[in-house]
């Protein structure tokens, strides 16, 4: 059974890159455009791992992660933060919100797959 990844990113470019990279690596990919939509599709998508951006309209990555962690079913799902925010403060906030790990953009397919494999069985 393919592993399912839910990606949440408002950038069409990054969404497409994620899609291509994840599909090529044999993952099933479900995509949402912001935190609100991410939470909306969470149940239906039923992912094994989540990759999310931080800066997004409507609901940012911090809020999204907190929302996922509040969901009984997904409170321990691995969540990777994909963002260009590289300063320690933002990373700290993401961790406090409950992020499992992070991938620093620029987008690098190898790094992404490595990180996903690191947090999934």
């Amino acid at each position: 059974m393919k592993k399912k990844v839910l990606t949440v990113d408002d950038s069409r470019t990054i969404r497409n890159m994620l899609l291509v990279t994840l599909n090529n690596a044999g993952f099933e990919t479900i995509q949402a455009e912001d935190g609100v939509e991410g939470l909306e599709v969470l149940e239906e998508a039923n992912p094994d791992v989540i990759v999310t951006d931080i800066n997004m309209p409507r609901l940012d990555g911090f809020g999204f992660i907190e929302g996922v962690r509040r969901n009984e079913k997904y409170r321990a799902i691995p969540i990777l933060v994909l963002t260009t925010e590289s300063d320690a403060e933002k990373k700290n906030r993401a961790r406090q919100a409950g992020a499992t790990g992070w991938i620093v953009k620029p987008f690098d397919p190898t790094k992404l797959i490595d990180a996903i494999e690191r947090v999934t069985a």
Partner: peptide, 20 residues
């Protein structure tokens, strides 16, 4: 604040994609 955020995000998105 959402206007400022939107402006920030626009530049941020361009930077993110450009980096890739």
């Amino acid at each position: 604040p959402e206007t400022v955020n939107a402006v920030f995000r626009a530049v941020h998105s361009i930077k993110g994609g450009a980096g890739a």
